[in-house]
Amino acid sequence: MKQLLWWQKGMVGFVFGVLAFLYLPIVVLIVFSFNDSKVTSFPLAGFTWHWYQAVFANAQMLTALKNSLIVAVCATGLTLTIGTLAALVLDRHDFPGKGLFRNAILLPLSLPGLVTGIAMLNFYKQIGIPQSLTAVVIGHATALLGVVVSQVMARLAKTDHRLLEASADLGAGPVETFFRVTLPSIRPAILGAGLLSFTLSFDEIPVTYFLTGRDITLPIYIYSTLRRGITPEINAIGSMIVLVSLLLIVLSVGLLRDRK
């Protein structure tokens, strides 16, 4: 690297500061998950696995974790299927109201989740879908369509239309062309959107808050526990979630790179 000017050196420091701001809190979370004390304050009280043991002994928390995983898997599968189809329709066909559809599908990305949750709650009440994990799955799948549609459409826009013509020219019908040419070219987008949808669904609170019934997800469990106060168990499960998230990121970066 060439010699930096004084203000550039200052910026290096600034950037390190911002990165520290972004990561120190996560480090603090992990450190306190091993701290042998009920309060989260310095000086540290010594190392313990106790809070992790407590997590695995907490049936309520484990059920919530299981519910979250079920919801995230189902919602991701559903939203990928519908979202990919939606992206294909929006990419290939013109029809009246197309702009409205695209904007409606993308709206939940920028709209506070709460508003989407309220809209869904109103509607589900009217048509009689009870508050339940099923309602949450449908809600998540719908709210996350925007993630899938935006990513897949961006990819479709980059896909050369002539490839489809070439495939047809070489004797492949539309279905074969879809599976052998279109799908491989949008696979990275689908994969990326799937991972993102899973993470978002797993972590989702506002929509879940309104749509869930007696069965609660992990974020809702943590949220309602926190309103009462801090328990170090949350640090432990939180650290585990952070670890899994980081693993997922490394995995997805690796996967997407190999595809290139």
Binding site: P25, I26, L29, N235, V242, L246, I249
Partner: peptide, 17 residues
């Protein structure tokens, strides 16, 4: 990357800090 780490947890860490 932090965007991929639970939003709830990132808010929560500030409650600890």
């Amino acid at each position: 990357v932090p965007l991929w780490v639970s939003y709830l947890l990132r808010a929560y860490t500030w409650k600890i800090i």
